[in-house]
Design a protein around this nucleic acid. Sequence first.
DNA 1: TACTCTAATTTAGAGCCTCTAAGAATTCTA
DNA 2: TAGAATTCTTAGAGGCTCTAAATTAGAGTA
Lengths: 239, 239
Amino acid sequence: MPEPTSRRERARKATLAEVHVAARKLLVTKGSNAVTINAVARELGMSGPALYHYFAGHEDLVGAVTAGFFEELAQAMAAARDERPGASLDQRLLATCRALRAWATHHPAEFGWIFATPIDKSNRATGSERHRAGQGFEQVLQDLIVELWETRGFEVPDPVTLPDSLMSQLRSYSDAIGGRLPPEAAHVFLDCWIRLYGLLCMEILHQLDFVLADLEPVFELCLRELASRLGLEYSEPDN
Amino acid sequence: MPEPTSRRERARKATLAEVHVAARKLLVTKGSNAVTINAVARELGMSGPALYHYFAGHEDLVGAVTAGFFEELAQAMAAARDERPGASLDQRLLATCRALRAWATHHPAEFGWIFATPIDKSNRATGSERHRAGQGFEQVLQDLIVELWETRGFEVPDPVTLPDSLMSQLRSYSDAIGGRLPPEAAHVFLDCWIRLYGLLCMEILHQLDFVLADLEPVFELCLRELASRLGLEYSEPDN
DNA sequence: TACTCTAATTTAGAGCCTCTAAGAATTCTA
DNA sequence: TAGAATTCTTAGAGGCTCTAAATTAGAGTA
């Protein structure tokens, strides 16, 4: 198929791209409440209801924009991972985590929009665009952990010590990712992710402003801990 | 002053109380977007603009409602802390943390509203109602940690190993709380809080639904870790 | 008691928003 | 090239925030 793009399809794609740009601009400059169907349409020089040919409604637009952010974030992380060709797995993992925070701090509005917004049901659905993009993001970290697990492994809790209800959930998850991580390794992965997530949310949502303005050092300490937990060699950020 | 309440003042208080009830009902039943000035007024049988005599605008109302939630949460935690008269400090601390999660899971909408909403500037201001109530909440955990620190202490990192920029921020915080915790102990406190916060946000925002539906066992594991970090004796929840 | 002052409320209205409906213009397809 | 599909427009119903002006109900005072 040399030309899967008819004239109309191309136009549609261009419009969708414009929508993402406009929505993001509104988000960044005027906050998430300014990302309305009308405002986005106005930004494109269209009149409101036209956008209903592209999105089922406001939530759908929000989901699409979110998916775009997820993709960009995942790409930024993947780029950091592959930046140094000869880098060790340890270095690649740390670089990926740092890219996560870098993206979050450089794009706080987008990060908050992605991670600190209650996900409504339609966007939580398994088939949704947002869900798919979220998995793409998860994949980046997961791949690294899987690689680590397969090449060197890391210390995991004895499955017997984990509560049954947790183990059964972890088993489903382990199956869902094709058994690439056994339940107890999945547990460690999730635990690491929860820590990163909590720290970043706190920073981006300004929940910790009352005490700490700059969480960079806390983040590095967190990475140190995660590294030791995963048996990685910690190294300072290099710039 | 036997009667600081004139007839009018009483009426005003009653109205404010009604506002909180109505706003909460709307939040829980129809989501945070349904908590509008108009809808709340309608719920009270008033017509819209009347509420502008009670609140400067929508954000102000939001801040007041948030403050109410903070107070309720702090009270629930304090109640759990004081429930068993003869309980050890260890038990009181664990009970308080568990009360935090219990409140969060029983009132997910309210918890999300408090902790997983970007705080706008006016509500972040030091004098705001929300800020004051947030401090009341923080106090509950802080008091326990201070008590622990003063009676037994706990393991802290060597201040020299903490980055300067972090230390200077921690020093300000330490001063701000009257030096009741030295910077390095404050660091441990914050680290514990960040972990609890991240875990709860993740649960309430459904960010982890793709793998874990019930985070109760993860929370208990987290408490185990925090307990060992603070030198507490971990004990199972008692119900 | 009557008179003023203030607080609580109401309606009117401007300017946003979401989303539906109906028609006009454009492009694709058979 | 004629019909079908897509894109876009305007019109409009109903909701929201917030301001302004008019109305009513209490409180304080001469």
